[in-house]
Nucleic acid binder design. Sequence first.
DNA 1: CGAGTTGTTGAGTGTATTCAAACGCGGTGG
DNA 2: CCACCGCGTTTGAATACACTCAACAACTCG
Lengths: 238, 238
Amino acid sequence: MNISQRSRANPPEPLRNCPACPVRNVSVCSTLDTDSFAELTSIGMELSIPAQTTLFSEGDPVHSVYSVVRGVLRDFRIMPDGQRQLVGFTLPGELVGALLGPTQPYSADTLGPVVVCRFPRTAFWDYFSRTRRSVQGVYGSAARDLGLVYDQLSLLGARSAERKVASFLVGFRDRWHRGGAGSLVPLPMTRQDLGDYLGLGISTVSRTLTALARRRLIVIVPGGVRILDHAKLEELTR
Amino acid sequence: MNISQRSRANPPEPLRNCPACPVRNVSVCSTLDTDSFAELTSIGMELSIPAQTTLFSEGDPVHSVYSVVRGVLRDFRIMPDGQRQLVGFTLPGELVGALLGPTQPYSADTLGPVVVCRFPRTAFWDYFSRTRRSVQGVYGSAARDLGLVYDQLSLLGARSAERKVASFLVGFRDRWHRGGAGSLVPLPMTRQDLGDYLGLGISTVSRTLTALARRRLIVIVPGGVRILDHAKLEELTR
DNA sequence: CGAGTTGTTGAGTGTATTCAAACGCGGTGG
DNA sequence: CCACCGCGTTTGAATACACTCAACAACTCG
C-alpha cells in the first residue's frame, strides 16, 4: 500500500490544534519565529498514515517535507540485488524529506500508525532566504540528513557487532529522550530492520542483545529494551 | 601541519585564469550563470596546499567552502577511542565544506599536493536565495554531502569484503571519470585509508585486491588499479 | 646504499554467518 | 475456552570469513 492509496482513506486535514501538538516544542516548529510559524500552520496539512505504508520512495520528485508527530518512519534504499539498506529511522519531532535536491535519496515507510505534518518544501526555502540568521534553527531539525548520517557511517564502520549494537542503543536512547534522562529504549522495528541498519545478520543482532542482557547491561522488554548500566554500555561504544 | 601554518608559506592568490582551470566545466563553477560566476571569481582565492596538511577539522566553524582543483582530500572523523573513520574522498571538481550548519561535520586533509578555490560560504547562500531555480545546480556539486554519503552507507552495510572493495572501485571509477569510460582507477590513498573507509582491516583490503587481480578482474598498478572486466566487477557489487 | 615506510602473504584464531529447529506470542476459528 | 496457525525471535551447531600477529618484500627517500 502506498501513500496515494492511503490518502483516500485518510484525507489530509488542515492544522487546527498546534498548541496541543506533542512535538510542538521540539520539532522544526519550535525554531520558527511567530510569523513564520503562523504561515507554516496555515499551509501545513496533517496526515494520518496506517502501519506499513510508504510515505515516499527513492527517486520521487520532492514537493513536500514532513514533520513526524507520532510514530516512527523507516528510511531505506533497495540495492540492485534486492538487498535493503536502512539508512535511518525518523522519530517524532524530526523532519524527513530532502530539503535540497530534486529527488528523494531514500524511501520512507511507516513502522506503525504515523501522524505527520506535510509542508511544501518551498515554504522552507522561503523561510531560508528570508531569515538567514535562523538557518541554523531549520538546520537543527535537518541535522538528521547530515550529522546523523555521518554518525551512522561511524557506526557501520565499527568492526564488532557488540559495538554496533551498543552504539545504536545509546544513540537511539539519546534521540528518543532528546538528551534527557531515560532508560527505556523503544524498538518499534524488527530484528531484521536492525540488522539491515547495522550491517549485521538477524541472528547476530539477537545474540548480541541477549549477551548484553546476560551481562545485566540491559533488559529486553516487549517492544524495546531498558538500559540498566548506561556507563558500561557507553563504554562499549568506544 | 595545519592550514594556518601552511598558508604562511603559500599565501592565497586571487583567481586569475579560470578559463584554463582543469575543472572549469565540471565543478560548481559550471553550474552558475555568467553574473554569478563573475562574482564568484572576484571573491574566490586559490590555495596551494602541501601533502598531508589539514584543510579544516571537525567542529571548526564554517566560513568557507572549497572547490578542489587538483589533488584529492581525505575526509574523516576521529572516534572517541582514537579510531579513525573515513567518511569520503573529495576529488577534483567536487565541493568540500558544509554548505549548511554551523560547524564542519568532519575533518579534511590532503593526500598529496592539492589546489583548491576557497569561497566564503555566504556567497553560496546569496546565490541560493537569489536564483532559486538553480538550487539544483549548486546541489549537483554539493551532492557529495547527501547522495554520496548514502551510497557509502550502502557500501558499509555490505557483508563481505569482496563486495565492499568491488563497490568502492566501481564507484571511484565512475566519480573519477565522471561516468565516462576509463579503466584506470587511481588510488592515491594508502591501504590503511581504504580499510578505514570500508570498515576492513588493512590485510583484508590487500588480500581482496590481490584476489580480484588473480581472477583477472583488475590489475594492480603503481598508484592504483586498472579494471580489466568491468561487467564481472560490477556483478560483484550486487 | 641503508633506513623507514607501505604493501603482501602466511598461519592461526575469533567472530559473524548460514542453516535449522524450537520457542513465544497474538490472532483466528472451531 | 482452547487448539491451531503465522510471524518474529531465540538458540544451537557447523561453517566461512575477516582479524591479529608476524615475517617478508617492495618502494621511497635521505
